[in-house]
Amino acid sequence: MADDFINSITNFINSATEDVSALRINVQKEIVASVISDTPVDTGLARKNWQAAKDTIPTSVVPYAGSPTAAGAQAVSQAQSTAFGEDGTWYFVNNLHYIYYLEYGTSRMAAKGMARKNAKRIADNLRSRYG
């Protein structure tokens, strides 16, 4: 009888852990894809410089001289392949000097808000689903 109870608890814990891990992976993939696709494209450099890493903040700037339209797909692919679902701290950053101005705008340029609006949208979706 006690063994059945322990097995039930163990199965529940394993199932819940797998569900949380899958959710974490899906949220990470969604934030990467949506932020990168909402980043404005001129040369493709801003999109290409979205970088993901586990437990260490990326500090480099990625040089890019390819097609502006390919930059987003390449950045999404690279960021989504980085330590999704694993324990630890996951960082998603852009180190270009002008990314702040794309996100928040200037007196001459409207804010794009790619990171803020997507983080809010995903958080709202999670709250409505699980809250």
Rank of each mutant, 00 (worst) to 15 (best):
S77R: 14
A73N: 15
P63N: 05
P63A: 08
I99V: 14
A115I: 15
Y101V: 07
S81R: 10
A111G: 09
N94R: 06
R116Q: 08
S128Y: 02
L96M: 15
Q78V: 13
W90H: 08
A123N: 13
R127P: 00
L126I: 15
Y98T: 07
R108L: 12
L126K: 04
M109W: 07
E103Y: 13
A73Q: 12
A65R: 14
A110V: 06
K54G: 10
T89N: 09
Q74I: 13
M109A: 12
A115N: 09
E103H: 09
F84E: 07
T56G: 00
G72T: 02
I99Y: 03
P68C: 08
A70T: 05
L96C: 07
R129E: 05
R121H: 09
S67D: 14
S107A: 15
P68M: 11
L126P: 09
I99E: 04
M109D: 00
A119T: 13
S107G: 14
Q80A: 02
A75E: 05
L102A: 02
A70G: 06
G88R: 06
T59I: 09
Y101S: 12
A115M: 15
A53L: 06
A53C: 04
I99M: 14
E103F: 10
D87W: 10
A71K: 02
I122R: 04
D55R: 03
Q78E: 15
K117A: 02
A79G: 06
G72R: 01
T59P: 00
R121Q: 12
V93Y: 11
G66E: 08
Y98A: 08
G72M: 04
G85R: 03
Y100Q: 11
S107Q: 11
V93M: 02
T59A: 14
W90E: 02
N94W: 12
K112R: 07
G66T: 03
